[in-house]
Design a protein around this nucleic acid. Structure first.
Lengths: 340, 340
DNA sequence: ACTGGCACTCGACTTTGACGAGTGCCAAAC
DNA sequence: GTTTGGCACTCGTCAAAGTCGAGTGCCAGT
């Protein structure tokens, strides 16, 4: 038996009521609050079908119904239109992001903004190195056998690393290396650099080869291997809203997951272009987050994507509103980066 | 009436039992578990006195006693010896910190280690810029009117800032500025730089004065005004141990406080040399942390202090153990920085 | 100064029963 | 065939009442 329009309407009503009241919703209350035009008994029949199909369930016999993960999924996919943001929210976003002085500042403001607007936990990934290009590379002599390697990406991120040289090296030689490196790598996507770095060593003067190889290895490490992704987090206190009911009573696993950068990166970082991804409950591969939902999207200047951002909350969350907010914030941040 | 030795012994026993069982402790259980050599009745009398003096209290009539903040304070000040760490713990510390590749890594490892050993929330302040010296300053031309200013501190911290120049500037002039700046500032404590920076502008060539002033202002901002303190945090999940009992049932205010960097800096950043500071419950100025205790200390190479670290937990915590761990970790980190 | 004894307090836990929201099913109506 | 009203039934929630026992304070005796 397939689900006709009214049954879907009933499901929508259940999700909406449950999200706002946090209490199992019964057939009578449902017809009272929504103009369904049918009697409670009919709704009950529909509910029985919805339950059979796995979209809702009863916490216990003779209680109201609660949406299952599958129910939320159906709701998100087919029953909800993305809510347009209120003008007040738009203004809040603009006010919040205007006046950011550097990348750190942008990211911090963004994550706080997101946490505040959605009243959930917000996560923002710093512009990923893997997706940016080299703007400039600098070699700073610290002593005759030590260099500081500084990489500046076009997204504004800066990484530095210490290089121990195999032999004392003259200042001019360092300058020469710097020139060559920049000539080769400026403007290149980080992910495209490895062959170029190898070429640098190949082409370099035999006398300098050893030194260059040494620099190159650190360079590779900086550009690719240890292209460390960074994150900002805010709003953990929002996990305590909704009392002990959300997250099946235990914040513990959620807090643990939030401390693992790797996990968060997996959640937020895997983004396809111009998609907002919603992971509901069980859909999360992380066991600790079985009781949570994650709404994430990519951001970046124009249509390119340099990083991800999103929010995490109980499965019982306001999906349309959250999705709208996450998208809007991502767009604003992208614009901000484009101006740079 | 003053507290004789036995009463103090009773207090110690109460604190120890309560910390380990988390339940109000009664007179009978007390004499059973500790060799006090007196009867429960006597202990009851002592308890009455201790309660009068404000060191313990009853959650409700006819329940056991629980230490008050003042009780913990007395315990920490006069009744507890710092527990020596177990060899296993020492080994854990060493293993954990060996192999750190850079400052970020050191800080991250440290904060995780601390959280793991104490099973509380750990906070580590990055080496404070205000307390470090300049190792090197670099000016990197990005375009003719833009420079990247990079400062490397002796603690390994690196800060960078963009400088917009008032007029196009030749590469040689930039190099010249760089030389002058380094000659003046290398090795100088950041807190001592402002007059020297001012002198730099005074002494500079009239033609370059404007440009130098511009660099100097960003320099000052980097060195002093925005000497942004950074923090690392770990172990928030430990807040959920001990169930709803700790923190008077609500994690919310604590989580909120933990998100405010300013608050955390106040807690662990204000350190005097070679002191371990213990703030118990009400002693915290932050309202949100009235139900928490903080153990903090400074760390740094040798006897100097470049930053603070500490842990935060419920007032009902194992003070001797925590204090010992915090001190030990601080010492190891200091040694690690000294090797650099 | 310490102890044993004793009456008393009071929270924690259990039992009981009433209440009511909510269900499933069925026969009748549309 | 779908919808509806009716009805018996389930079961969690809440409040009242009762029991239990840990723990106390006090007092008289050693």
């Amino acid at each position: 038996m397939s689900l006709d329009d009214r049954k879907l309407e009933v499901l929508r009503a259940i999700v909406e009521d449950y999200v706002s009241t946090q209490e199992p919703v019964g057939s009578k209350a449902l017809v009272e609050r929504h103009q369904l035009g049918v009697s409670p008994a009919t709704v009950r029949n529909d509910m029985a079908v919805l339950e059979e199909e796995g979209y809702i369930r009863q916490p216990h016999t003779s209680a109201g119904r609660v949406p299952t993960d599958a129910g939320y999924r159906l709701f998100v996919d087919r029953l909800s239109r993305v809510k347009p943001l209120s003008p007040a929210e738009r203004r809040a976003i603009e006010r919040f992001l205007v006046g950011a002085v550097d990348l750190d500042d942008v990211v911090h403001r963004t994550v706080r903004l997101l946490a505040q607007l959605t009243r959930q936990v917000a996560v923002v990934q710093y512009p990923s190195l893997a997706r940016s290009s080299v703007r400039h590379l600098e070699l700073v002599p610290i002593s005759t056998t030590r260099l500081m390697l500084v990489m500046i990406a076009d997204t504004g991120r800066v990484e530095q690393r210490l290089v121990e040289l195999p032999a004392p090296t003259a200042n001019d030689d360092v300058l020469d290396m710097r020139r060559k490196i920049n000539a080769k790598l400026s403007g290149v996507k980080l992910s495209d650099t490895p062959p170029l770095v190898a070429a640098l060593v190949e082409e370099s003067d035999p006398a300098m080869r050893n030194t260059m190889a040494c620099v190159a290895s650190v360079l590779l490490e900086t550009l690719v291997e240890r292209s460390e992704e960074r994150l900002a987090l805010a709003g953990t206190a929002n996990l305590t809203r909704g009392g002990v009911l959300d997250f099946q009573g235990s914040l513990r696993p959620v807090l643990e997951a939030l401390e693992e950068e790797v996990i968060l990166l997996k959640l937020i970082g895997e983004v396809e272009p111009s998609t907002t991804r919603v992971r509901i409950g069980d859909e999360n591969e992380i066991d600790n987050l079985r009781a949570a939902s994650v709404v994430s999207t990519g951001y970046g200047p124009g249509t390119t994507i340099v990083g991800g951002l999103g929010v995490l909350g109980p499965t019982r969350m306001d999906y349309p509103g959250t999705i709208a907010t996450v998208r809007a914030v991502a767009r604003y941040v992208g614009d901000l980066l484009a101006q740079n």
